[in-house]
């Protein structure tokens, strides 16, 4: 490879690696100025954290699936079912509601993971079908009504608590993803499942476990969702999986696979939250907000598509 070509590849790879940071910095800077600094008031920083929380958890948990080159389209339905189940038992006991949310989330995750590992069905169709089955079940399950929680649960919608949960969850995921064989092998599966299998990696085990994490995340998100809104309905978690995908893309994981970095799961949700909050605080016309979000997402997708071919180790 010529020196000139190597240099060209170098700057293109650099752009590919730094664009999420640049977007976040630009969004912070632009809206920091446009809002006269109120974006950084303690209350709005709390809002950013609060509004990022569910996507931080969702994105961090989805890292392993993204690394394997797949996505979980059942997450939204899983959140809804877990939230409804938790809300239903919350009148008996709040700790029991947490246990139920995690148990249901994990159970759905295990079902998805088990079928993904054992059945030769593309995971896109598999999880979408499971999601639709759950969605169809939610209406009759709730008698087409909201399931409410005790008002006292609203006190658990606490930014410090969410921050603590996000940090603990993040540390665990970071270690698993970057410091263990599990993370390394997940990325190997994303690079080439055939090579990974020939290298002796038990594909079924890793595929199954990836969905266990998203199931766990769905349970956590569901619990904090009912703490925030005071109940659950079949609409709870709507578009959650889609927003996780968008956040991951903005964070630098547009295509998934072995190049997905842990930081993608942190930067992406922050970009979305800062952008949404910043535009409202800066009084960006409402019609323009969706346009700007869509344009940014499109630019990121085009940019990463054009440059991804240079991202070769």
């Amino acid at each position: 490879m010529s020196e000139q070509k190597r240099e060209k590849m170098s700057w293109q790879r650099t752009v590919l690696k730094v664009y999420p940071f640049v977007i976040l910095a630009a969004v912070l800077l632009v809206f920091g100025i446009l809002t006269g600094g109120s974006l950084f008031s303690s209350r709005n920083l709390e809002n950013i954290l609060d509004q990022s929380f569910q996507y931080l958890i969702g994105c961090m948990a989805a890292l392993f699936i993204f690394a394997q080159g797949e996505q979980d389209f059942a997450m939204a339905s899983n959140v809804a079912l877990s939230a409804i189940a938790a809300a239903a038992v919350s009148q008996i006991s709040v700790p029991l509601a947490l246990v139920v949310a995690l148990a249901v989330g994990l159970a759905i995750g295990c079902i998805c993971g088990g079928m993904y590992a054992k059945l030769p069905i593309p995971v896109f169709f598999l999880t979408m079908c499971i999601g639709n089955v759950i969605s169809g079940f939610l209406g009759p399950l709730t008698n087409y009504s909201s399931v409410r929680t005790p008002v006292s649960m609203l006190d658990l919608d606490n930014a410090i608590l969410k921050l603590a949960v996000a940090v603990v969850f993040g540390v665990i995921i970071y270690i698993l993803y970057n410091r263990t064989r599990y993370g390394k092998n997940s990325r190997a599966i994303g690079a080439s499942s055939t090579v990974a299998k020939l290298s002796g990696i038990n594909l079924s085990k890793y595929k199954f476990a990836a969905f266990v994490f998203t199931g766990l995340a769905a349970g956590i998100v569901a619990f904090f969702s009912i703490c925030k809104s005071g109940g659950a309905s079949k609409a709870t978690g709507t578009m959650f999986h889609f927003n996780v995908m968008v956040a991951m893309a903005l964070g630098g994981a547009t295509t998934g696979g072995p190049k997905v970095k842990f930081i993608c799961a942190i930067i992406g949700p922050l970009i979305i939250s800062v952008l949404t909050l910043g535009m409202n605080l800066a009084s960006v016309p409402v019609g323009m907000q969706n346009l700007l979000k869509g344009a940014l997402f499109l630019c990121v997708m085009v940019l990463s598509d054009r440059l991804s071919k240079f991202d070769i180790d």
């Binding site: 912070l28 006269g36 109120s38 950084f40 605080l281």
Partner: peptide, 24 residues
């Protein structure tokens, strides 16, 4: 990059920092 990001946030805070209030 981390330093750059931190610098931008600090500068924004220092230059524009004020509690509350809308903008336009």
């Amino acid at each position: 990059l981390a330093l750059l990001l931190a610098l931008i946030m600090v500068l924004s805070l220092a230059a524009c920092g004020q509690e509350g209030g809308g903008t336009q």
